[in-house]
Design a protein around this nucleic acid. Sequence first.
DNA 1: TATTGTCGATCGAACGATCGTTAGGGAAAG
DNA 2: CTTTCCCTAACGATCGTTCGATCGACAATA
Lengths: 205, 205
Amino acid sequence: MRNVDRATLGGNLRIDQVLESATRLFTEKGYEAASVRDLAAELEIRPSSLYHHFPGKQHILFAICMRMQTDFNAEVIPELLANRPPDEAIASAVRRHVLFGQRRKGEVVVNIRERRSLPAEQLAQVNGLRREYRDTLARVIDAGCRQGSFRVGDPKLAAMAIVDMINGLPHWFKPRDEQDLERVADLYAHAALALLRGWETDPVS
Amino acid sequence: MRNVDRATLGGNLRIDQVLESATRLFTEKGYEAASVRDLAAELEIRPSSLYHHFPGKQHILFAICMRMQTDFNAEVIPELLANRPPDEAIASAVRRHVLFGQRRKGEVVVNIRERRSLPAEQLAQVNGLRREYRDTLARVIDAGCRQGSFRVGDPKLAAMAIVDMINGLPHWFKPRDEQDLERVADLYAHAALALLRGWETDPVS
DNA sequence: TATTGTCGATCGAACGATCGTTAGGGAAAG
DNA sequence: CTTTCCCTAACGATCGTTCGATCGACAATA
C-alpha cells in the first residue's frame, strides 16, 4: 500500500513528516495543548506508532528547536565572521536573519515560544546555540564601536535589542510576495545600522 | 479562622491573590502546563474553591491579560497623545513602556506568551487594546515624518519593530537596581529615536 | 523458483495519572 | 436566615506512554 512512498522517498522521511506536522501543531495550539493523538491524527497513524520514531513527546520539541537553531547558526554566523567592515557584516547578517525567520517561520516561532517546556538540560543546549549567535553579534558591534562606525555603550544590550526586534517579525509579518519580503529584510538591515550608528548620538536637531 | 484576614484587607483581596499566584505560575510553567490544582496549592485552598471566584481557568488568564493591557494603555498612550513634538512623545512613551514592562513583568510575559490560549472572542478583545496602542504609536511616527524629524517609509512597520524590541526586554532583562533600570529605559528611548531618525538615511560615512 | 527468517513500521488495547469541572454540604458572619 | 467562602468527593475526559501482536518488504537459503 505505502511501499511506493517508502521506496521512492527513502528511510527517514517519516521523521521529517513528524517534525513538520509537529511544528505546525505546536505553532497553532502550543506544545502543551497539542496532544500526541493530535499529531498522530495529522500523520494518519496511531499514537503508539510515533514512539517507534521518537522516545517521547519532548524529544520532538527538542529536535525541532535544535535543528532550527543549528541551521540558523550555520547560515547567519558566517556572515558575521566574514572579513569585512562591521556595518556590512551586520547588515548582511540581519538580512539573513530576517529571511531565515520567514523561510522557517514555524520552527522559529516554536523555538521562541515553546522551548521553555524543555527539560533543563535540553533547554541549556538550545540556549547555548542562541548565546553563541548573540555573543558573535555583540563582538562585531563592539568592533564597529572601536572602529568608529557605531556608537553604543553596551554592545550586548544592543545585540539583544536587535535580535528581539528581528525575532518579533515571524510572529506577525505576512509578506505579500517575495519582493515584499526582500524589502522588509533590507529595511530591517537599515534599521539595525541606524540603531547602532545613532544610539548614543545626541539629536543633531 | 480567616476572619482576621478578610476583615482587615477587604473583599476582593482573594481575587487579587489568585491573579498574582496565577501570573507567577503561568510565567514559570506556561498556561497549559499550570494546573488548577497547582494554583489552588499555592493559595492553600482546595481546587473547587477557586470556582467561587472565577468561572473557569480561561477567565483567570483573560483577567490577567485584560487588566495588564488596560493599565498599560492608560499609562502609555497619554504620553503619545500629549501636545508636544513627536520625538519627545516617543521618547517618553518608550521610557514608560520599558518601566511598565519591568514593574508588571509577570503579567506582561503572560500576556505575550499565553494569550493565544484564549478563545477567539476574548483574544480579539485583548488584541484590540494592543492594536490601539500600536496605531497610536504609528500615528505619532507618521506625524514625526511629515514634520521632518523622522525618516521612515512605513510607520506601522516602524511601530511594530519598536514594540517588538521593547517587549523582548521583560523576557531576559534583570536590572541590578533601580538606577540600572532607569539607564536601560533611557537607552531604549534613545534607541527608538535613533531608529526613526536614521532608518532611511544613507550612511553619512 | 519456492520457502524461510529478519526487521522496521504499524497496529489495537490498555495502563495509571492527571486534567478541568461539578455537586452538595458545612461553618462563619451579618 | 441569607450570603459568602471553603470543604470533601467525585465525575468523565484526556493525557503520555507501554505492551505484544501483526503486516509487508527483502535477503538468505533450500
